[in-house]
Nucleic acid binder design. Structure first.
Length: 215
DNA sequence: AAGGGCAACAACCGCCACCTT
DNA sequence: CAAGGTGGCGGTTGTTGCCCT
């Protein structure tokens, strides 16, 4: 599962890491830390560029890196986070201890994306039904029921942005504050809705991104 | 048994933001 | 303020192994 080894023009090795290289890098970083990635290969005695060393360390050699399969719970977590913040792999990885952004990204592309694409197709079919009834969407209480049906507020906003109702709200934040005037905020979670406290870690960046998209 | 296609994953590449000088 | 260096991030590629015909 790796590339054939080769040497770059500046003498740096490319391709798969050998056990010996791993051992050298790991031993050095565990002893001295990663104070300067560009210099580390020289001091650690490996013919790799600093970037390559950093990647190897972050994705594979770090002591707390998990190497096994992703659990069902981790899958759900990735799907949920991705639905809210998109391809922010580093941010997602920060919430899954022991999983690197690269691993999560790969896992997404090979396993989870297909699942989401299929789900989107199903939602598009549902959206056609909503489009036919969108003329009746003119108050927040109706919007709440729509969100519950639609499963995803971002998708809902995208839908509404083409409707006259969208002009009534300057931002998704205003929309959501109108919709959820209690201290709780609804966000999507896989196939079911969950309730999160307003101002939650997840809702804030989500809404910020949301506004950035609109502006 | 062979080989073609696809899935899985490690690693590379380019870009960007931040920091230092 | 500008320029250069560095780390970090996300997209993409390349290789291997497995499965199916």
């Amino acid at each position: 599962m790796s590339r054939t080894s080769n040497i770059t023009k500046n003498g740096m090795k490319k391709g798969p890491w050998s056990k010996e290289e791993d051992d050298k890098l790991k031993a050095y970083i565990q002893r001295y830390g990663h104070w300067n990635w560009r210099e580390i290969p020289r001091f650690a005695g490996v013919s790799r560029c600093g970037k390559s060393c950093r990647l190897r360390w972050m994705n594979y050699l770090r002591p707390n890196v998990k190497h096994g399969n992703f659990t069902k719970q981790e899958e759900e977590q990735i799907l949920e986070l991705h639905s809210k913040i998109g391809n922010k792999w580093a941010t997602i990885a920060a919430q899954l201890p022991g999983r690197s952004d690269n691993k999560i990204k790969n896992y997404w592309h090979t396993h989870l994306r297909k699942r989401v694409v299929k789900k989107d197709d199903d939602q598009n079919e549902n959206k056609i039904v909503h489009d036919e009834t969108s003329e009746s969407v003119n108050d927040p209480s109706t919007l709440i029921s729509l969100v519950q049906d639609n499963d995803d507020i971002e998708a809902l906003w995208a839908t509404l942005s083409t409707e006259s109702i969208a002009s009534s709200y300057s931002s998704s934040a205003e929309l959501s504050s109108t919709m959820f005037n209690s201290s709780d905020c609804l966000v999507s979670s896989g196939d079911s809705m969950q309730t999160y406290t307003h101002g939650d870690f997840w809702t804030d960046p989500f809404l910020a991104d949301f506004d950035a998209i609109r502006s």
